[in-house]
Design a protein around this nucleic acid. Structure first.
Length: 849
RNA sequence: GCGGGCGUGAUGGAAUGGUAGACAUACCAGACUUAAAAUCUGGAGGCCGUAUGGCCGUGCGGGUUCAAGUCCCGCCGCCCGCACCA
């Protein structure tokens, strides 16, 4: 009897696939193409279980599509620019480039043993000059088409380190290194005109039938289309009117004050001669730039002293306040506040003792607003007590529409469609990113670099021993000739957001070595991505930016129109979680917990000391909590097939899966069991007859059907449950050799997408022809799946009370007769007639008494 | 604060509006063994009952339906995203 030895067979079959070039993507007009892609990884240096899960799902699809007769493209690359490389250089010295490429080499070495069906010949990293040079070419093309511009924008500024901070470098309003209070500061930065596509990006979501509804909803909310009224408040002092935008113009008679952003031009103008306001604005600009930080900060205001006239009553004057919660980026940067019908405005007015006027009441309740604002529902009628447009009762939506019409007719306002989506700020004041290929010339201004000078390469001789961007202080790199006039000029030192890198890499995979951004013919053949798989954390930004880029690349002539929505189907997988083990210093429940790796713990105790650990429920694997399991050690212990099988088996793919040692062992035991069956069948007498051949083959065909459905619908855990079931049947089967031989070969084929190495080994052992990776997917024979009889539950008043077994073809009336003859039914009827009998053939019978 | 998601046995989870708990873990019992490991077989939502069986049960409270984990309304709890992390 031979034993299952994962390490031996996995290396062997990986070599076979390499030699046969099984996974090289090839064009072949006889077959349809299929492009499956997992979101490419950041090269941190270590693969983690989340990667294993993500790539295994993609691999299941890729191998299944190969078996069902497709030309499969399944590439891999590296999202290699970004801050961690610079942080490493600052923390431990060295160069971001060396750190990144060495991490890539390490991670590739860790990934290959997983046995993924990846076409490695197409691999690239976004930090390769060959890649980012093409990205620069693309940028210049986008510039030419007016999709790029510069404007001022706000950044997190660390006043001590004199540097721009990323949101993640701001901790509780302070810089992570310096600890200084972070300020918001304006800088001239580069932007993509994604807002030109707001409506298009919103409406095209409708066509994305194979995207999760929740992702489409999140994107729609992010784009945030709204219809409202824009109008000006006349200033009492005769200055330019203050333009406001509101989505609830119907509450205009409840206006209490006009609020402007601390960054509003009027606020900035007034602060010059008003030290108290200047101080307020400085204070308001402290804190992070995230929407969350701004929204959750204490609401503060400052009365500017300006007064404006209410548009419906020129004698009604309203004060103008600067408020820290008003964003300059949204609408006009100015609002009117209606405290009675907006909680934030109400809180603000109560705090500063501003008037509160009700304009709407619920139909059955006209209690004036006190501490809780009454927001008139858009679809329910309410009383409009302070109405001005003609209706006494209206739904919120009717009131809004009517007000807009009213204002337009009267000529003091206009209906405006607004989007929450802002233009994409792509400037980063950092070294390790794609240089923005423009030059600043004293005479010619901002000039694009000549395409023949691309790539504008990052200089290697930089250091990270002082704060700020090394490109800014580089002695020679900044100085260059103006591409236009040839005079001395300065290079742009901002680099691109790494989201730019990831917005078109999937298109580059179709022709990764082309000397233009795309090879139109290759892109046309392989695009779109048929199935994209990744984490839901990318549901908004990465996917929205990629959708924008696909349109931009069409406009710049790099992509066909059919690819303006580049991802046909999207799947968002859940995380891999693990329990957290912690101890605290004896007797000190307030001491900082000490975390322990799972391998240091057995049966709830530390292996080393026997100390009992506290078990915190499962959470996302993270180094800081030490609740991580290293795929490399799992592969060393059990093999890649076990890891792959387990990450698919225990939870539905879109949900989190909890890694448990016992679950991994169970997966390993199961693969051993399958191998043992294979071994046993291999030793059977080839002419042996047995009993139950039909039962085995019927189960086999049902399993083919169920597993195929499972793979097609991302029901991997359900498919695996069916495979467990069938394995159990095969294990106990007394069928003859021919049936068992067919069953084990089919089992191997059905398992091949998940556990490809074991499947190849079984295939070879059972005399299969060629590689199982190339064998056509088994097809279920419907005739072989039919059971002759079916068991129906009998319900009485919706509760199951009995069951009957009848022929599958039996008609409704006959089923009803049999059901009514059941003792439980007779007892329940107690001689009376049933009120109603519902018969759902093949499903259920419900008798209502 | 805003937006999104999720709540089912001890645990992970299954269930086109149609037998709730498939499959797996942990647990218990049995077989094999001198013993252990490995392997195999069986049990099991809770409560009551020797048992046939009965009652309860999918976060909480209502509703629709012959029938609700699933659909609707209102709560509670947890998780994720919020534009310079990738």
């Amino acid at each position: 009897m031979s034993r299952y030895s994962a390490n031996e067979i996995e290396a062997k079959w990986q070599q076979s696939w390499d030699q046969a070039e099984t996974f090289l993507a090839t064009r072949n007009d006889d077959k349809p193409k299929y492009y499956v892609l997992e979101m490419f990884p950041y090269p941190s240096g270590r693969i983690h279980m989340g990667h294993v899960r993500n790539y295994t799902m993609g691999d299941v699809i890729a191998r299944y599509k190969l078996a069902t007769g497709h030309n499969v493209l399944h590439p891999m690359g590296w999202d290699a620019f970004g801050m961690p490389a610079e942080n490493a250089a600052m923390a431990i010295g060295g160069h971001p480039k060396d750190w990144t490429y060495s991490n890539i080499a390490d991670m590739r070495n860790q990934m290959k043993p997983l046995g993924m069906s990846i076409d490695w010949s197409r691999e690239f990293a976004t930090c390769d000059p060959e890649y980012y040079g093409q990205q620069q070419a693309l940028f210049l093309d986008m510039m030419e088409k007016g999709l790029v511009y510069r404007k001022n924008a706000i950044v997190n500024w660390d006043p001590e380190d004199m540097t721009v901070l990323a949101n993640e470098q701001v901790e509780q309003g302070r810089g992570w290194r310096s600890g200084a209070l972070v300020e918001r500061r304006e800088l001239t930065q580069w932007f993509f005109k994604i807002s030109d596509y707001s409506d298009e990006l919103l409406s095209a979501l409708d066509g994305l039938d194979d995207w999760p509804a929740k992702v489409k909803l999140m994107q729609a909310n992010w784009i945030g289309k709204s219809r409202g009224l824009q109008f000006g408040f006349e200033r009492v002092d005769g200055g330019d009117p203050i333009e406001v935008y509101t989505t609830r113009p119907d509450t205009l008679m409840g206006a209490s004050f006009v609020g402007i952003s601390p960054d509003h031009p009027i606020a900035k103008h007034l602060e010059k001669n008003n030290p108290a306001l200047a101080a307020f604005n400085i204070e308001a600009r402290k804190g992070g730039t995230t929407e969350e930080a701004i929204e959750t900060a204490e609401k503060l205001g400052f009365d500017t002293g300006l007064r404006v006239r209410h548009p419906l009553n020129p004698n009604w004057e309203l004060p103008v306040w600067v408020a820290n919660f008003i964003l300059m980026d949204y609408g006009t940067g100015a609002i009117f506040a209606c405290p009675a019908h907006d909680q934030r405005d109400l809180d603000f007015c109560r705090k500063y003792d501003l008037p509160v006027t009700d304009t709407f009441f619920a139909l059955d309740d006209n209690t004036p607003v006190d501490r809780t604002a009454f927001v008139p529902p858009k679809t329910e009628k309410v009383n409009w007590v302070n109405h001005f447009a003609g209706l006494e009762t209206a739904t919120g939506q009717e009131a809004i529409d009517l007000t807009i019409d009213f204002a337009e007719t009267a000529g003091w306002g206009k209906g405006v469609t607004q989007y929450r989506l802002r233009d994409w700020g792509l400037s980063r004041q950092r070294y390790w990113g794609c240089p923005i290929p423009v030059v600043h010339c004293a005479d010619c201004g901002v000039v694009p670099e000549n395409k023949q000078n691309l790539p504008v390469q990052l200089p290697d001789d930089v250091s990270f021993d002082m704060p700020g961007n090394p490109l800014d202080r580089h002695p020679t790199w900044r100085n260059c000739a103006c591409p236009n006039c040839g005079n001395d000029a300065l290079r742009e030192t901002d680099t691109m957001d790494t989201f730019v890198d990831s917005s078109w890499y999937f298109i580059r995979f179709t022709a990764p070595r082309a000397d233009t951004p795309t090879d139109r013919d290759e892109a046309n053949y392989w695009m779109n991505v048929d199935q994209y798989i990744g984490g839901v954390e990318h549901a908004i930004l990465h996917l929205l930016y990629s959708r924008f880029f696909a349109r931009a690349m069409q406009i710049t002539g790099h992509l066909e129109e059919k690819s303006s929505e580049p991802f046909n189907a999207l799947f968002t997988q859940g995380m891999v979680t693990h329990e957290i083990y912690q101890t605290r210093k004896a007797g000190d429940t307030k001491a900082r917990p000490i975390y322990h790796l799972p391998e240091e713990v057995k049966d709830g105790k530390l292996i080393a000391t026997g100390e009992t650990v506290e078990i915190i429920p499962s959470a996302k694997m993270s180094k800081s909590k030490k609740n991580v399991v290293d795929p490399i050690s799992i592969i060393a212990t059990y093999g890649a097939d076990t890891a792959r099988w387990f990450v698919l088996s225990d939870s539905p793919p879109e949900r989190d899966v909890e890694w448990t040692a016992s679950g991994a062992e169970a997966a390993y035991r199961h693969l051993n069991r399958v191998w043992n069956i294979c071994d046993r069948v291999g030793t059977m007498d080839k002419t042996a007859l047995g009993s139950g051949d039909d039962d085995l083959l019927r189960a086999m065909h049902k399993t083919i059907h169920d597993v195929t459905m499972g793979v097609e619908t991302f029901g991997f855990n359900a498919a695996i449950a069916k495979l467990y079931g069938f394995t159990g049947i095969l294990q106990k089967s007394k069928a003859g050799y021919t049936a068992q031989h067919e069953a084990i070969k089919t089992l191997a084929q059905l398992m091949a997408p998940m556990t490809p190495h074991l499947a190849e080994e079984i295939w070879a052992h059972q005399g299969g022809i060629g590689l199982i990776a190339n064998a056509p997917w088994p097809v279920a024979d419907p005739a072989m799946m039919v059971e002759d009889s079916v068991t129906l539950p009998i319900q009485i008043n919706g509760k199951r009370r009995a069951e009957i077994t009848v022929s599958k073809d039996l008609g409704k009336a006959a089923i009803e007769t049999i059901a009514l003859g059941e003792p439980a039914v007779i007892k329940a009827l107690a001689g009376g007639a049933p009120k109603k009998v519902i018969v759902v053939p093949g499903r259920i019978v419900n008798v209502v008494v």
